[in-house]
């Protein structure tokens, strides 16, 4: 349906109408004097379609083109943490292979208040992880064994049970866990893992199949 011809036709019609409106304006000036009409500036907003501003983006060609803020080192630590939260298993790949660190970088780099606050928490948390790993095992988080990583993560994975000295780290961990889940389960692999089967055109909507009714005790 996107045809330049239609755009041009719309444009011509709008221009024609603008002439008509100018005539209307002049006949109305006697009772409603308005400032003299200047000729429109050479460069004006487009007549049709998205204008490419943050509040009017092109929905068919989405872009998240703000500069990314996490460093290569931070991303390496983050990738290991993401895979610790959502590792590969028999059904689906791990979070890093699904591209989750890049999503989290996009998220914490976004020019919005909430994301700018989360950037501080994520950066601070990543730095804390490496400091804590160094204190406990003498090496950075990315080089810990799975058992060593679990020792740290077990202390920070559940806020209500985290010791006072781990409260801030637990908040960081929960934020990264939630972001990892969004990043992972929105990918093709993640949607398949959950067995999401919608977003397809159907000739009719039949309601739940018998297996579902049985599962729910509604059969």
């Amino acid at each position: 349906m996107s045809s330049d011809g239609i755009d041009r036709r719309d444009a011509l019609k709008l221009i024609a109408a603008a002439g008509g409106l100018t005539a209307a304006a002049s006949s109305a000036e006697a009772q409603n004097p308005a400032p003299a009409q200047a000729t429109p500036p050479a460069r004006t907003l487009p007549l049709a379609g998205p204008r490419g501003t943050p509040t009017d983006p092109d929905l068919l060609r989405p872009r998240a083109d703000w500069p990314r803020k996490l460093s290569a080192g931070e991303l390496a630590t983050l990738a290991v943490l993401c895979d610790t939260i959502i590792p590969a298993d028999a059904k689906s790949p791990g979070a890093a292979a699904a591209g989750v660190p890049a999503y989290i970088n996009e998220y914490v780099s976004a020019p919005y208040d909430g994301q700018m606050r989360d950037l501080i928490r994520v950066r601070g948390g990543l730095a804390w992880l490496n400091v804590e790993s160094g204190k406990r095992f003498g090496k950075p988080f990315a080089r810990l064994s799975a058992a060593e990583r679990a020792q740290i993560c077990d202390d920070i994975c559940y806020l209500p049970k985290a010791k006072p000295e781990f409260q801030a780290a637990a908040r960081f961990f929960d934020l990264v866990r939630d972001l990892t889940a969004v990043g992972f389960y929105t990918t093709e692999a993640g949607m398949k893992d959950l067995q999401y089967v919608g977003n397809v055109a159907l000739p009719r909507f039949d309601g739940p199949p018998p297996a579902v009714l049985k599962h729910l005790g509604l059969a």
Partner: peptide
């Protein structure tokens, strides 16, 4: 079972 999107599993910790 809607399409997974932002916010999915937020709060699953609890």
């Amino acid at each position: 079972r809607g399409m997974p999107g932002p916010g999915i599993f937020g709060g699953l910790e609890a």
